[in-house]
């Protein structure tokens, strides 16, 4: 029989993922692993993890990784890539990490056109710490620190990182995808591939923003989370290529 699917070897068999059921972090980690294998890049991979649920897989990925202080992944990646241009350096960051505490590091690395790849997981919430408001939390969406929901007058509006970075001259590739349907999963995988290829080609800063779910802190089951993405998240965060140089 022809083998048409097998689990990526970049995920260690005997280790357990720390992700909740239905969490799309695990989908994205799988996609990254598949891309690394398909592009034959595992031996070059140097992954910089953010702090948050975005770091829960450090124990079960089989490639090189380090953990940056909360928000500083793009700075850590800058130091790594500048001193080892042959490594494939990518960050894996949540929205609190990338777009709140790490805003300066994120914007500045993008502005310098660092030849790194950012995988940015936008789940609209602080997952790990228990559902506090993120810069990406939707208007009206409840969070443990916004019990009445996000109120524009008090909290401002959700931040659109692709569009914000699109104001800068240097970035090469800015794309927003999701993992809410099989078709979107495939698009996400292709976007990651392209972002890695850009780095190999020396094109500079690429970011794949992935709109994902956090069933646990959204208070929804995994299926309703898919619906929430479709009906609420995607109208606020439209998918597509924002920049492709």
């Amino acid at each position: 029989m022809e083998l048409i699917y097998s689990r990526t070897k970049t995920i260690q068999e005997d280790k357990v993922s720390g992700f909740c059921p239905g969490c799309m972090h695990s989908t994205v980690i799988k996609l990254i692993g598949e891309v690394l294998e398909e592009m034959d890049l595992v031996e070059k991979a140097a992954c910089v993890l953010g702090i948050g649920c975005c770091g829960l897989h450090m124990d079960y990925i089989a490639y090189d990784n380090t953990t940056a202080p909360h928000g500083r992944a793009c700075a850590v990646a800058t130091g790594m890539k500048r001193t080892n241009p042959d490594s494939l350096v990518f960050t894996y960051q949540g929205d609190g990490d990338f777009a709140s505490i790490g805003l300066a590091e994120s914007m500045s690395a993008a502005n310098r056109g660092e030849n790194i790849t950012v995988i940015f997981i936008n789940n609209g919430i602080y997952g790990m710490t228990g559902g506090q408001m993120a810069p990406t939390t939707l208007i009206g969406m409840k969070a443990s620190t916004a019990p009445k929901g996000r109120i524009a007058e008090e909290h401002g509006y959700p931040m659109h990182m692709c569009e914000i970075l699109n104001q800068l001259t240097a970035p090469a590739y800015l794309v927003r995808t999701s993992c809410n349907t099989p078709a979107n999963v495939i698009k996400t995988k292709n976007a990651i591939k392209k972002a890695f290829q850009n780095q190999l080609d020396g094109k500079g800063f690429s970011m794949v923003e992935i709109v994902t779910s956090c069933p646990t802190n959204w208070g929804l089951d995994p299926l309703d989370s898919l619906k929430f993405i479709e009906e609420k998240m995607l109208p606020e965060f439209p998918l597509g290529v924002i920049r492709d140089k």
């Binding site: 500083r72 700075a75 850590v76 800058t78 790594m80 080892n84 300066a104």
Partner: peptide
């Protein structure tokens, strides 16, 4: 690299030193 802050700078060093 002129970092965007001391925070960024020390983390760039963390990255470069982590890579040897």
């Amino acid at each position: 690299v002129q970092g965007e802050s001391e925070v960024a700078s020390v983390n760039m060093v963390y990255g470069a030193a982590s890579a040897g």
